[in-house]
Nucleic acid binder design. Structure first.
Lengths: 251, 251
DNA sequence: GCAAGTTGTCTACTCGATTAGACAAGCAAT
DNA sequence: ATTGCTTGTCTAATCGAGTAGACAACTTGC
């Protein structure tokens, strides 16, 4: 809550608040509350008109704040009913068969994937070693943003050999699926060899793509995918919005 | 500096910056730099036009930011010459004879004092013990904001016996000086018995009066003043903007 | 003294934030 | 089905942020 919710004339005299728009203050208040965990998942928030009265602002200002929170995936609105907290994290299972779309489908949502950028670059030592290639070999580097019901979940950088998979970007752009892109290159099945999980903070670029604030935490998953024969195919560095995902590992 | 100083069209798409005004971002950047100590005292900042070019904004927007910083006492402008960093802290000497006005005068500045509020309240045990009064005795409680050349330095709560000094508020309001207020009550001289120094953060009210951000540190000085005979006169709880003051104790 | 550079001030304009009010559309419970 | 409440949408108006340009007033170095 604002320091003085009922009086927004004082806000203008409050140094800390000057230069920050009303809707942003309100949005930040609710974001804080939700991320702190003060609300249940699917909990109904007060009506827009009530929030407006509580802050002493117009209802439209509250709507602006809620629109912001909705875009960040923190709440969702149902016309005629109310605005509800979306505090559930996507349970993202990391297994031998790890597929983004299947993880999202299992949660009852619809998955989207979008190729943000594609370029060729030589393999670093690190990547060459992972994929058993020569350092300096030309690689396809795909930057893919993945979302669940429109809410961005992760941004992943994927490297694969440009020689072996020359049309990776083209096929991914067409089918929006790594699985089908590999299918076009004659790889019918692939599985996860290993995953390495760390945590950090979103940089400006990732934060923008994930529609999250810069200071929020992310989960970083580096991984290697192989054919059933053990042949390395691709390696990925994924950054997951930690506020929206929980990783599940079952043994 | 902003993440992308040269391009402020991207700023609008940056989630973290949406709803925060341009001048506020620029002001925050410079405040950060100055408080971190990246600038010398009296160092000249780039010209307004150059800062504007660097951020890709209009010069007026920079002026708005600088006005903010000037009001917070972080910079000062000299017409025709430039804008300069004001990173020097007021050396506030705590001695047997501690006077705000004398400390400010010693630094070559002009002191101001303003009675923010005045009310009567019974003495707490703590205060009664300090002043050798009965708990519950009626006290005058003065809230005084003190400034140096217009920059707020401290806000102090002073308690003295309403019975012995019935016109404390009236005389202070007239002369804006504790010394002269006491003179009217027949106290020609007084001295500091003890001071107790702690640190903390400004609450919303103090932050507003000190024109500082809520999260900035303050020095808290509790003290007792007595007559040369050892008779307790008043006790004070002062909150000093730590960014603007250094306390000097010489033995 | 002069020229170059800097802050201070003014006007005019556009755009978005915010307010205000009204009504449509949809949900839920009686 | 009706009633009450809620979100969605629209219009109109005010105010401040930000842009643009010009000029005055002032400082500094030559």
């Amino acid at each position: 809550m604002l320091t003085r919710p009922t009086n927004n004339r004082m806000r203008k005299n409050d140094l800390a608040m000057r230069g920050i728009m009303l809707w942003r203050c309100i949005a930040d208040d609710f974001e804080q509350m939700i991320l702190i965990g003060k609300h249940e998942d699917r909990e109904r928030l007060p009506a827009e008109s009530e929030i407006a009265a509580r802050y002493g602002v117009n209802r439209h200002t509250v709507r602006r704040a809620m629109a912001e929170l909705a875009q960040r995936g923190l709440v969702y609105t149902e016309r005629g009913s109310g605005t509800y907290v979306k505090a559930d994290k996507l349970n993202y299972r990391i297994s031998q068969r790890t597929r983004f779309s299947e993880n999202v489908a299992a949660a009852g949502h619809e998955a989207q994937g979008r190729l943000q950028s594609h370029r060729f670059e030589p393999a670093t030592e690190e990547i060459a070693e992972r994929l058993k290639l020569e350092p300096g070999e030309q690689m396809s580097r795909l930057e893919i943003v993945r979302a669940s019901d429109g809410v961005p979940i992760s941004v992943a950088t994927t490297w694969l050999s440009a020689r072996r998979y020359p049309d990776a970007a083209k096929f991914f752009r067409r089918h929006r699926s790594i699985t089908r892109m590999l299918d076009h290159h004659g790889i019918a099945a692939y599985e996860r060899k290993w995953s390495r999980i760390t945590a950090g903070f979103a940089d400006a670029v990732d934060a923008g793509r994930l529609r999250m604030a810069v200071h929020r935490p992310i989960l970083v998953i580096e991984s290697l995918d192989i054919t059933p024969d053990g042949e390395p195919i691709l390696t990925t560095r994924g950054r997951f919005a930690a506020d929206r995902v929980a990783l599940i590992i079952e043994n």
